[in-house]
Design a protein around this nucleic acid. Structure first.
Lengths: 247, 247
DNA sequence: GACCCGCTTTTGTCTATACAAATAGATACA
DNA sequence: TGTATCTATTTGTATAGACAAAAGCGGGTC
């Protein structure tokens, strides 16, 4: 037994996925669906709102609801902190700090980050290993104005990615994935060949439109990949938490 | 002026993002939030349901609502068809078919796809160029049992990615992003150096747990990247459709 | 033509109420 | 002690009604 709003949701979704209702097609008005399903408008509204929240339809007052353009391959990738990820997979994770220094933001990088030249930053380089094998080179910039406590943190016992996640709230993140060839220094650190293809994840994190941190994480291409699934009507993440839970 | 359910949503979200309410923390019961915000339970329910749909909280009857584990960096990447993407960006797109043949699925590939050995497939190789410059090498397998009409389609005027998207509904997709070094043949086709880092997107698409198509799209690393944003409280995709719209 | 005003339609939000489903915890019983 | 049953609590779903906000549309005026 499924609920009515769920059935409406799925009926419409099926028609969108099968292209019976192509992009741009107008979905019946709420009052029409009320007639069709013999239910209240709130119920219909709940179904349509859910479709809108997923970006499958666009709703406009006085105009109607329409199948969204480009209901493309939208994939959700879980991009985790390296140490957390390794832990979850049951692998051993270690890291060591290669560099840690406080400096002023140079002009080129400042432009790239959209922050003022000369701002005080903490620059960190860090090598991660999983099960003893080098797995990632992390090059990070932390804006000290946004994270003053980083000034005195050595990151000897907590990796910077995890530490920041625990210490600093962020409101927006941007990820870029690139393939680059390893230069000599990178290859040496990652114990791979010079010129070897590397998968680089760049992440910039903001809080209220001020950059918190910018990081490049360079993985050897033969030991790493990103994966993501897409199920159209997937409900949110399920079964994540304990039966009983601490307050 | 924001709606009440939106404010409740954002208040709770902010506490989750800031770790004021860490994973596992019990969120106030609906009736408590009703008191706090002086609104009806339906309004509170709407806010909490939205948080649950996003996977930020887990709700269980008689128990309560809890902050979900791993409210990680979940990023949404729009992975589009190459030709559509180029069009949207205002670039010129062309392609040519390098290979097109019907064959039986060999054992190794069959295992990889999770399909029976010997199944009839259409194998397609295709070179895409944007503004005259090679931009992607596409290696595709189409399961003819699922897409019989592909047997007679030449793909001379519509690229296979687009054609499939228009012809065949799919219910699930999986994406993998990898970095690989170009072998000699790939490098020649993409007009780049042998060994150059390439960004490879692998996509497998299913309908009702039967594979529809499997494709590897190999981009030269110096001309391509994937990007995705994450705003926690982002509402669904907006502004996608026309002012006026056909039926 | 351009501009403003008011009408109408559609979606957005909210309320108060009701009952159903799940289930932790208490209670009764073997 | 273990087990079945009851009870209270919390979330899930649905309803009918109300008003607000956005925006297309037509009419009027200049």
């Amino acid at each position: 037994m499924v609920s009515i709003h769920r059935r409406i949701f799925e009926d419409i979704e099926a028609r969108i996925m099968s292209r019976a209702w192509p992009p741009g097609h107008r979905i019946p008005f709420e009052h029409e669906l009320v007639q069709e399903y013999q239910c209240s408008r709130m119920t219909v509204n709940k179904a349509l709102s859910a479709l809108a929240a997923r970006g499958m339809i666009i709703r406009r007052r006085k105009v109607g609801s329409f199948v969204a353009a480009r209901q493309i391959d939208r994939t959700v990738m879980d991009i985790q902190d390296i140490s957390t990820e390794a832990e979850l997979a049951g692998h051993d994770h270690s890291y060591r700090i290669l560099m840690r220094k406080i400096e002023a933001l140079d002009a080129a990088t400042a432009t790239q980050l959209g922050e003022p030249t000369g701002a005080e930053i903490l620059r960190l380089h860090c090598l991660h290993a999983v099960d003893g094998k080098p797995n990632a080179l992390e090059r990070r910039i932390i804006m000290l104005a946004m994270v003053p406590s980083a000034r005195t943190e050595s990151f000897a016992s907590v990796p910077p990615g995890k530490w920041l996640l625990d210490m600093v709230p962020w409101s927006k993140a941007r990820h870029v994935i690139r393939a680059v060839s390893a230069d000599a220094a990178t290859a040496r650190l990652l114990e791979t060949e010079r010129g070897e293809a590397c998968l680089t994840l760049v992440r910039q994190t903001w809080q209220n439109s001020r950059t918190v941190t910018y990081v490049e994480i360079i993985h050897p291409g033969d030991r790493f990949q990103f994966a993501g699934d897409f199920h159209p009507s997937e409900k949110g993440a399920m079964d994540q938490l304990p039966r009983r839970s601490a307050s």
